[in-house]
Each structure stands twice: as structure tokens, then as C-alpha cells.
Simulated scan of single mutants.
Amino acid sequence: LILDEKGQKLSKKLRNYPEPELIFEKYGADALRYFLLASTPIGEDYKFSEKGVQEVYRKLISTVLNTLSFLRLYSGKMKISASKAPTKPKHVLDRWILSRLQSLIEQINKEMEKYELTRASRPLEEFVEDLSNWYVRRSRARFQHPKSRSEYLEAAGTLAFVLAEFAKAAAPFTPFLAEVNKKFIDKKLNELMDLTRKIAALGLKARAVAGIKVRQPLQKLKIQSASRRTKFKITEELLVLLKEELNVKEVEIVKKLPGGPQWLAETDGRISVALDTELTAELKEEGLIRELVRNIQEMRRDAGLKPQEKIAARYSCSGGLEEIIGKHRDNLKQAISADKLEAGLKEKQVFAAEKTFDLETGPGDTKNIWIGIKKL
């Protein structure tokens, strides 16, 4: 039987359910199908919840569609093959997501062979979270500003393959038909990536406690095993990921964490971290430039500019802020995809977007700046 959230049988008399057509229209049939399959084991009464269907759409269906849109946006007119994964990918994120994918397929196949449909379907949502919130988020630079064509093709090829194979694994009644290619499974890498993400979560928690935004660079994070039984060795590739995720210059594994007012410590009982919260003048400047980049990227988006389209930007601000922008001019131009970046107002110039806002240049000190951008 299908019951409502209170456990009552669905009834036209009670009108305790929404019209199915409206559910299909708002969330699609896949969201309803997955909710019923993943929420209740076969043989038990189902408890229908529109909020549950909505949550499935948001976390699973919509996230996959957004990831596909991301790939299409940055692939442009290039044809990216999804039929096979890149051979021996160099980047640790590519190797990890391929390993994670094949582990997922293996897990689904195992449960499907036992006719455990509910247990087979539940890992899909967790995988999509890993794909979107870790792989894609940490790989954005390789799509937006790749160092080489080969770096972009490897990232795009990996994502295309993963999305195609995920579609097979998620298809109703057919996940066991997807062939498992065990050469991609790397259990050690999966464990190390899980550890890396736990450390990142502790570092982000320390930032939140200190009240320092992730956009503000910091100097150092130190890591210590909180137990003598817990030993770990993180590769240089994963240390780089930690630096990027936490926006710190250095990450160091130590036997004992430092003390003092500038260090903020967090632990989960197994791992402990200490974050250096001291803000030097140089770090403050970098944070200010990142905040400026964020505002200009919002202006680009609001103006309907595509990521690959070049712009000309003009700004007007006070002397102190102008000096900082001048010092970081080249990096700023690259970050906002600008061929021109000029100071001073110019009469009779039409911009695609303009914005006036304040930037914090020190404790209790803000500077006003005007920015105008236009497509070249």
C-alpha cells in the first residue's frame, strides 16, 4: 500500500495526496520512482511525501542535470567522447572519480544480484554528492582556465564518461547490465580521498569558528593524528587539493600541533588540525583581489556573458586601493578573462554592467570602488 506521511491510506475522500500529474510536472517521474524505491524496502508499505520527492529532485536529478550543463557549457562545439575513459589519467581527481564510479557500479551489481533494490539504489545519491560537490567543484579551474589542451580534454573526457556510465547504473532495472571495469578501482586512493575530505571539513570548520571567509587566503594548516593507532600518509597531489579547498599556502603533517592565539584547532577524535589565522598585509591584499574577482564574475553573469568571452574592464577608486589593484593587475585580468583593465572614469562609454561597492582593506577600513565591464 501507499500511505500518506501520517500513515493513512491514500484516499480520494480524505484528499490526502497531490495529483500525480502535478508531481510529474514539478519533479519528473524519475524523482518519484527513485523516492519510492530508495525510501522503503520492497514488501513494506510506502509512505508518500512530496517533500521527500522534492529532496530527491534537488539532490539527485537536478544535480546530475546541472553537472551535464556544466560539461556542455565548457565543451562548447568540441566533441567529447563518453564511450571510454581517458587512458591512465594523470590528475588525482580523475583517477579518484573513476575509482569511485566503478566502486558504485560494483556495489549496485552486488545488491541487484540479491534483489535488494532499495539497498542498490541508495548509493546513487551519495555518489552524485561526491561528483558535484568534490570532483566538479575542485576541477573547475581545469575547465575554465586549463593549463593546456590535454589537461582540459582529460578532465572533460573523464566527466563525460562518468556521466554516461552513471546513467547506465541509475537506469531502472538495468544497473547490473553495466560492465564493471575493475582496473579503475583503487581502494587505497578512495580511502585517502575520504581522509582528505575529512581534513578539509575540519579546516573549513576552523575557518568558520574564526570568522574568516574561504576567499581570504591563509598561510598554513597543520595536521596531526589524534590517535597513535591512526597513521596516515597523504600524497603531494592530495596536499595540493587541501591547499586549494582551504585556500592556504602550506599544509604540513606534524607530530604535535602548535599553540598560541594565532592557531585555531579542530578535531574529530581521530584527526586534529590547527589553522594559522594570522592575516599579514600580503594575505589581506590577496583576499581583497579575490573579493574583487567575485564581484566582477557576478557582473559577467548578470550581463549574460559566457565564460570564454573576453571583456574590457574599467575601474575608479581611491589611491590605496588603486595601488593594490595595480600590483595584482595581471592575475586579476586572467581571473576575470579581461584583455583590458584600465583605471579612471571615461565619459560617454557604454558598459554591459556597472557596479559600485565597498571592499574591506583592513579592520574597520573599507574603500569604495566603481567597476564597469563590456564585451570585446
Rank of each mutant, 00 (worst) to 15 (best):
E126M: 06
G157N: 00
V254S: 05
S81R: 12
K183Q: 05
G362V: 08
F176G: 10
L264M: 02
E244M: 08
G211Q: 04
K88F: 06
R142Y: 02
Q8Y: 07
E285F: 03
R122A: 05
N295A: 15
G157E: 01
K114Y: 04
F127N: 08
D30H: 11
E116F: 10
A353R: 13
E291D: 15
Y46D: 07
L283R: 08
S11M: 04
R15A: 14
I212Y: 09
K367Y: 02
K256C: 02
I212L: 13
Y27K: 01
G304Q: 08
I253M: 13
E179S: 03
M193T: 08
E25R: 11
K327N: 04
L101C: 02
N247S: 10
T361Y: 03
I296A: 07
A171W: 06
E342R: 09
K374Y: 13
T174E: 15
T235A: 10
E21F: 09
A31G: 01
R228N: 15
D268I: 05
V180N: 00
K183H: 05
W263F: 13
P123M: 06
L104H: 12
G52V: 15
G76V: 08
L239R: 11
K183S: 02
L376G: 06
E285C: 07
I271F: 02
K333W: 07
R122S: 04
R137A: 10
